[in-house]
């Protein structure tokens, strides 16, 4: 579609429109499956493919939205600071919880590498899957994984976390706000944290801390685990 080729606002408009439809779906059908991010992605992909619009035409404008991810992540320091007393009070639980989450993730990937007999590159691709995209891609590259696939897997992880956080916490009776925050931030980085922020202030602050710590611990942990397969 040549009409849209040089439009900056096409990508931005489409993203907002699709996300808006996603929010409507979520409001009408209160099911975790109807996650606004997931719905928006499906709608946009369907539109791009069916109208035969180039991916770059979309990103041309949409990149103006995604470039705000870094400044927004920086802002997570504010709730983190405001809830500092809660973090201090629970520091042992936080360290144990986040480290156990990182270890679980790495062990899980090792187990799957064994079950599906992955080659080393595929194994390295999945090792950093639970952490924020920018760190994860760096780790994957360092260990010889497929960086583009790592990026996709991390994003799908984020969507799943964003989608299932509330359901899982309910089903497994994770009711302590601090524990919820650790669960969400450790398993599904910034995309999960966005959901934790909607659930509550403590959950959001703890999830922010978890995404930072889990990211840093995984850098070290993944380089050790890379030798195991």
């Amino acid at each position: 579609m040549e009409l849209f080729q040089n439009s900056v606002f096409f990508g931005i408009f489409l993203s907002f429109l699709a996300y808006g439809i996603g929010l409507l779906f979520k409001k009408k059908l209160k099911l975790a499956l109807f996650n606004p991010i997931l719905i928006a992605v499906v709608i946009i992909i369907l539109i791009l493919v069916s109208l035969n619009i180039d991916y770059d035409t979309y990103q041309n404008g949409a990149s103006f939205i995604s470039c705000m991810i870094t400044p927004s992540t920086v802002c997570l320091a504010v709730p983190l600071y405001e809830k500092l007393d809660i973090l201090k009070k629970n520091y042992k639980a936080l360290i144990v919880g986040i480290s156990s989450g990182v270890l679980t993730s790495l062990l899980n990937i090792l187990l799957f590498a064994f079950i599906f007999s992955f080659d080393h590159a595929t194994y390295a691709t999945f090792l950093p899957k639970s952490i924020t995209t920018a760190i994860g891609m760096g780790v994957s590259e360092e260990l010889g994984g497929y960086v583009a696939v790592t990026a996709s897997v991390i994003i799908i992880t984020g969507i799943i976390g964003n989608m299932l956080a509330e359901v899982i916490c309910r089903v497994f009776k994770i009711t302590e706000p601090v524990a919820k925050g650790v669960a969400i931030g450790t398993s599904s980085h910034a995309m999960g944290t966005a959901k934790a922020m909607e659930i509550g202030e403590i959950e959001g602050a703890v999830s922010s801390l978890s995404l930072v710590l889990a990211g840093v611990i995984t850098v070290a942990g993944a380089s050790v685990f890379a030798n195991f397969w």
């Binding site: 991010i37 992605v41 979309y58 995604s66 991810i69 400044p71 990026a151 910034a190 995309m191």
Partner: peptide, 24 residues
């Protein structure tokens, strides 16, 4: 404000899945 509108910022990178679809 930025934290509140954060979820929508993940939409464009998620659409990027389209590009690595071939490998996945």
């Amino acid at each position: 404000f930025l934290i509140e509108v954060m979820p929508i910022m993940f939409v464009p990178p998620a659409v990027g899945l389209l590009k690595s679809w071939g490998i996945i």
